[in-house]
Design a protein around this nucleic acid. Structure first.
Length: 455
RNA sequence: GUGGUUGUAGCUCAGUUGGUUAGAGCGCUGGAUUGUGGUUCCAGAGGUCGUGGGUUCAAGCCCCAUCUACCACCCCA
């Protein structure tokens, strides 16, 4: 063990137990996506750098993993360029591919590339890993999975409503209590306009997005540092402090934003959305949160964020509407709306609340103890029958000591052990032992299968 | 990317102002128990103290570098 092998910073291996739990999350989400008519696509782990660069801002470009060109890539680079040691100039010569940073941009690329084959509105889901050269922290990795669902090519707010219904379905099935927070970028734009700072929309959204985390004083300080006028910051205060139910807030907003065309459009959209949601009978609460901004700049309409009410934790799902995402790839005027589940955080919530199911379609339910050659031959046909009946089962591959075999079953958390030695063979039966209760029954082949299937 | 904290057995952690052979609990392996695991008892294995340098008669402990995990900022899932 002189030098232990290792994996790159911020990446993880997953043990069988972890994969079983992760798949429980992925399968639950996938099932719901399918239920709403979303279809899966997959895209390559690597994209052309030209597809990725400039889509995530300056910060994003730095966080892209770049892939070194193959072959003798250095010999083609002019000496003067090498001597300058300018990474920005040199990188394009050394690398033309990168690992995908999210699923949205590759999706936009996909839509543009196959626009003639895709049936619009296109409802797709995608669950794949993405990579970011960020500095890892707890719950933040360099390789992690995203679970995205988007509808592209439709302006209808019914899409937003259905995505929220999906969110409700998923968290209901996972037994997580959640709350959906809604806002609209047009309302934020309206607010910026009303306080006379519509130029500073991005700075304003970035700042008020932090409200919950850093408090109103710090937000105001940040706004002033970014060049928002004192008067404007003052005018912003009553809006951020709006109280009451979603309906009450909406009424107040309507009068505040009356002079802003875009602001009123946002209020209108939100009203329509709530009208769709009303009759859906969701378990999850949905509320208007004016401080919800989300850093992502490509959002243009609805903004969605989901938090659990069971514990203190960042958002476990987010999304929104983006007009013209495909414009950057030469297909303007196509609107999309999407959500993304944060699988890693959902995992942490389920783990801490002990909500992962004991049962899984992926674990062994029955193990045959191996007593020797004759007994093995007696068990094997029944093992085959169990498997045909869809029961995950295995036989211990050698006639090791009983203690060792039982221990193996115990550690693998196998529900049943089947014992068949001389006496069982003589009676043409099997002893079925329930590992949780310790209870044992002597059963024939058919009874054995039935008992296991029923439990 | 900036600033900081951390690393001792598979895991959680002790380890005196630098002093000879680095400890515990849990886990692991074997036995008590040749057809009964999760409880008990007994025995045993397992460490180049994250890695590489340096200071010193002497380094787990001090210094430097590096890697890892973590924390704050930036950003974000």
């Amino acid at each position: 063990m002189a030098q232990k092998p290792s994996i790159p910073k911020g990446t993880r291996d997953f043990s069988p137990a972890e994969v079983v739990k992760r798949n429980y999350i992925f399968n639950t989400i996938k099932k719901v996506f399918r239920l709403y008519g979303f279809q899966p696509i997959e895209t390559p782990a690597m994209e052309n750098l030209s597809t990725l660069m400039g889509k995530y801002g300056e910060e994003g470009d730095k966080l892209l993993f770049k892939i070194l060109n193959s072959g003798d890539f250095i010999s083609k680079v002019p000496n003067e360029l090498l001597d300058k040691k300018d990474s920005n100039k040199l990188t394009p010569k050394l690398s033309e591919k990168g690992l995908r940073y999210d699923l949205t941009v590759p999706f936009a690329r996909f839509v543009v590339q196959y626009r003639n084959d895709i049936v619009f509105p296109f409802r797709r889901y995608q669950m794949q890993p993405v990579w970011r050269a960020d500095r890892p922290q707890k719950g933040r990795y360099r390789e992690f999975y995203q679970c995205d669902a988007d509808v592209i090519g439709s302006n209808s707010l019914l899409n937003e409503a259905e995505l929220i219904q999906i969110i409700d379905n998923v968290f209901t099935q996972l037994k997580i209590n959640a709350i959906v927070k809604l806002n609209n970028r047009k309302i934020l734009a309206g607010i910026a306009e009303i306080i006379g700072e519509h130029e500073r929309l991005t700075d304003i959204t970035v700042a008020i997005d932090k409200l919950e985390k850093i408090g109103i004083e710090n937000v105001n300080r940040e706004l002033e540092e970014k060049g928002v006028s004192k008067v404007a910051v003052e005018n912003l205060q009553p809006i951020l402090a709006l109280q009451g139910s979603t309906g009450e807030k909406m009424v107040q907003l309507e009068s505040i934003l009356a002079a802003s065309e875009i602001g009123m459009k946002g209020v209108e959209e939100l009203k329509t959305l709530f009208n769709y949601l009303q009759p859906m009978g969701l378990n999850t609460g949905v509320e208007l949160d004016l401080t919800l901004a989300r850093g992502l700049n490509y959002y243009t309409g609805a903004i969605i964020e989901v938090k659990t009410t069971d514990m203190e934790m960042g958002s476990i799902c987010g999304g929104g509407r983006y007009d013209d995402l495909t414009g950057i790839f030469g297909l303007p005027g196509v609107s999309g709306v999407g959500i993304s589940f944060g699988a890693e955080r959902i995992y942490d919530v389920l783990e801490q609340l002990n909500l992962f199911p004991q049962e899984s379609p992926e674990i062994t339910r029955v193990m045959f103890v191996n007593f020797g050659e004759k007994e093995e031959a007696y068990c094997l046909p029944v093992l085959t029958k169990l498997r045909s009946a869809g029961i995950n089962s295995e036989i211990y591959p050698e006639s090791a000591k009983m203690k060792k075999q039982m221990n193996y079953a115990n550690k693998k958390q196998i529900q049943f052990v089947v014992l068949a030695g001389e006496s069982e063979i003589a009676e043409q039966k099997f002893t079925l032992k329930n590992m949780q209760t310790g209870e044992q029954q002597l059963l024939g082949t058919e009874e054995l299968i039935n008992t296991i299937s029923k439990s």
